[in-house]
Amino acid sequence: RVPVMTEVAARQALLHFVASQCCYGSRAAGELVIRRLRHLRMYRYRLETFSESRLSEWAFEPFTKPGAANPPGDPPLDLWDMEVGVPPLFQGQTRRCRVPRSAQVRDCHRCHGHGRSKCRVCHGAGRTRCVTCKGSRWRLKQQKRCQLCSGTGRKRCNTCSGRGSKTCATCQGEKKLQHFKQLVVTWKNNVFEFISEHQLNFPGELLSKVSGENIFKDENVVVYPIIDFPDSEISLASQRAIAEHSTAFATSSRILWQRQTVELIPITEVHYQYSGKPYLYYIYGLENKVYVLDYPERCCCSCTIV
């Protein structure tokens, strides 16, 4: 069970919080007088649905093995008939693998089946403008014919070695490509979270960042809504979450496993007095995090995070 917050623990939690803030003084935390501790409890419901979805996409590679194409009339496997190992539960992952019997051999679309493509530097000419004479054929300062290009104003293209074309980067000179279907399997952990309502001057989103005591856990291929929970909001949240996940994932993917939990998150409302004035702060979560509404010893300064 969650230990009951005492005045000593409440003061230590505040001192630890103040020490982490550059603009908060520690004297007030040490000298304040705690007047009242109000113990509260919040429930956090979470539904996790581990789903698997499959789709296919076309990919290609240079065709280097003539005679390895599929025999005619051999249909590819259905996506859901392929055996793919499932990762650990509730751990998202994406995996790609080739669909058997889906290969098709075609001419390379980049070089049109020639195995070579026009050089982009010389545009197929095999020669480029001389960088020394800028194509003028003369060394202007020396009034001599350019020796680098022998007075032609052009020189052999270094990119294609003067051939005007390069080995096609798409088919790597093989002239043909093997197109095939690629199975894309995505495992995803879909989470629904609900925290019971409260009437505190406290940001509810902070509770999603702390842990609580697990008081209920149920997991199976399909879980059923929680019934007659002491807080009716949790029962309603369970019904809504399971219905939403069933609608969202049962048609577009496959539900592999579900897990629903209820956590008890402790919150302590600390009323204290300092210099004759009343103040308030909250301690929440098993980590004893602190949220301060208006700390009495605080200065505004330009803080630099080192």
Rank of each mutant, 00 (worst) to 15 (best):
L200V: 00
Q178C: 12
E174P: 00
L200D: 03
S150M: 09
V185N: 04
E193I: 12
S208C: 08
L177H: 04
S161P: 04
Q182N: 09
Q182K: 10
N201S: 11
G153L: 01
Q182L: 10
F192H: 12
S196C: 08
C160K: 03
T186D: 07
K175P: 00
G204V: 11
G162S: 07
V191P: 05
T159M: 12
A169I: 13
K181A: 13
F192E: 13
G204W: 01
T152G: 08
K176G: 03
T167S: 14
E197C: 11
E197G: 13
C160Q: 00
F202K: 03
Q199T: 14
N189M: 10
E193K: 11
L206W: 02
T186V: 15
N190A: 13
F194W: 06
Q172C: 11
N214E: 15
G173W: 01
K188I: 06
C168A: 11
R163D: 11
L206C: 09
F192D: 15
C157E: 07
E193N: 09
L200R: 04
S165Y: 06
K188Y: 07
R156M: 10
V191T: 15
C171F: 01
Q172A: 13
T186S: 15
E193A: 12
K176L: 09
F192I: 11
K155Q: 08
K166Q: 15
C168P: 06
K188Q: 14
C171W: 00
L206V: 09
F202D: 08
E197A: 14
C160L: 03
S208H: 12
I195R: 06
S208N: 12
E205R: 04
V184Q: 08
G153V: 01
K176V: 04
V184D: 03
N214V: 15
K166V: 15
L207Y: 05
N190P: 05
V184F: 02
C157Y: 02
N158H: 07
H179L: 09
Q178L: 11
E174T: 14
V184W: 04
I195K: 01
A169W: 12
G212C: 02
K181Q: 15
A169H: 13
E197V: 10
S208F: 11
K181W: 05
G164W: 00
H179M: 07
T152H: 06
S165R: 11
R156C: 05
F180S: 01
N158F: 04
G204Y: 03
V210N: 02
K209H: 14
K209L: 14
V210P: 05
G212L: 02
E213P: 02
S196D: 07
C160T: 04
S161W: 05
E205Q: 08
F192N: 10
R156T: 14
G173Y: 03
N201I: 09
F194R: 05
N189I: 10
V185T: 10
V185M: 05
G153D: 00
V184R: 02
G162T: 09
P203H: 01
E193R: 07
A169R: 13
Q182T: 13
E205M: 02
T152I: 03
